[in-house]
């Protein structure tokens, strides 16, 4: 959280004059942060539970394509397509989880495999069915207008800083992000499964010995990250009106970075959903803020990598201090 404030202050000093502080600038980075934050909150739960999911970027591409192909190519109502896409995503998440639990291989390996399998399937199937790798025209399908209300509407506020009287548009994804973060926080801190998540990440054997259904929880957590990828895919497809087989690339890594910046331990057992919210906010501010500073946005990835390493060092230092202070 302090990191997010620090980044905000830095960007406010450097780029405040150029529009970073304006309402439109704020809406701009919040949109990026929201789409990342939806993923990061689910990934935070999974990582606290001691596992990784590298396949969510590919699930975003696949889930989006399922919606677009079913609705545009086969003329389905968009809601039916969205529903089927959710089911497909949940099945993929459950398969990830079951493979991890049954094979006892590191989830890093299993989901690295599914990253390529899902991306490859998405590209091959889409090209096989449509002959292209991008599918547009979602805006003309049945039920699109009602879907916009849930996934792509915006709250428009006139931006006093805009000389041309433009509105700042806050997308509904921000609402989804905060809602999911709220639910995730409640689950983590106030429910039995929340306590189990900390337990299975901290020490799966100890948790199993006191009767926690470790395997079932892990499968659920993989289904949750897959569902978060589906939500982001739906938001993107509805708001852009098209799907691309390459959507979501590297999102799995951005999400992990956001979660780690938010203070969650890579080894599991410790972390928070709120931390992931601020982690996503930090990444979003840097990604969009860098454009306001006038620095070439190619530098974003450099800064992201440096931030990740600094965040881990700082978190380790703070945790060590906290553990020693009795």
């Amino acid at each position: 959280m302090s990191g997010a404030i620090l980044v905000w202050v830095l960007l406010a000093i450097v780029a405040g004059e150029r529009g970073f502080l304006s309402l439109r600038g704020t809406a701009n980075y919040l949109q990026v942060a929201a789409e990342l934050g939806i993923l990061a909150v689910a990934v935070a739960l999974l990582m606290i539970g001691g596992e990784f999911d590298l396949s969510i970027g590919s699930i975003i591409g696949g889930a989006g394509m399922v919606i677009a192909v079913l609705s545009v190519q086969y003329g389905w109502n968009i809601w039916a397509a969205i529903g089927v896409s959710l089911i497909v995503s949940l099945v993929v998440g459950a398969l990830n989880g079951l493979l991890v639990v049954r094979t006892k291989l590191p989830s890093f390996i299993i989901t690295l495999g599914s990253l390529f399998i899902i991306r490859g399937l998405t590209i091959a199937e889409t090209r096989g069915i449509t002959g292209r790798t991008q599918v547009g025209g979602v805006k003309h399908v049945l039920g699109y207008d009602s879907a916009v209300k849930f996934f792509a509407s915006t709250l428009k506020i006139p931006d006093p800083a805009s000389s041309r009287g433009l509105d700042a548009a806050f997308p509904i994804s921000i609402f989804w992000w905060l809602l999911i973060a709220g639910v995730a926080t409640y689950i983590l801190l106030r429910t039995r499964p929340g306590n189990w998540i900390f337990g299975i990440g901290g020490d799966p054997h100890a948790a199993r010995n006191v009767g926690v259904p470790v395997d079932r929880m892990k499968v659920f957590l993989f289904m949750a990250t897959a569902a978060s990828a589906w939500l982001v895919a739906t938001i993107q497809v509805i708001s852009s009106g098209s799907a691309d087989t390459l959507r979501g690339q590297y999102r799995e890594f951005y999400a992990i970075i956001a979660v780690v910046i938010g203070g969650t331990l890579l080894t599991g057992g410790y972390g928070s959903a709120i931390g992931a919210v601020f982690g996503a906010l930090t990444v979003g501010m840097v990604q969009q803020g860098i454009i306001f500073t006038g620095v070439d946005s190619d530098w974003f990835q450099v800064i992201l990598g440096v931030m990740l390493i600094i965040a881990v060092l700082v978190n380790n230092f703070i945790r060590k201090r906290a553990a020693e202070a009795k």
Binding site: R192, G199, G202, H205, A206, A207, V210, V212
Partner: peptide
């Protein structure tokens, strides 16, 4: 060795599995 999970609070450990 498996008695407790070090990073979890005393209360959370105490009630883990029987919240």
């Amino acid at each position: 060795d498996l008695a407790m999970i070090p990073l979890m609070s005393v209360t959370r450990n105490f009630f883990l599995g029987s919240e």
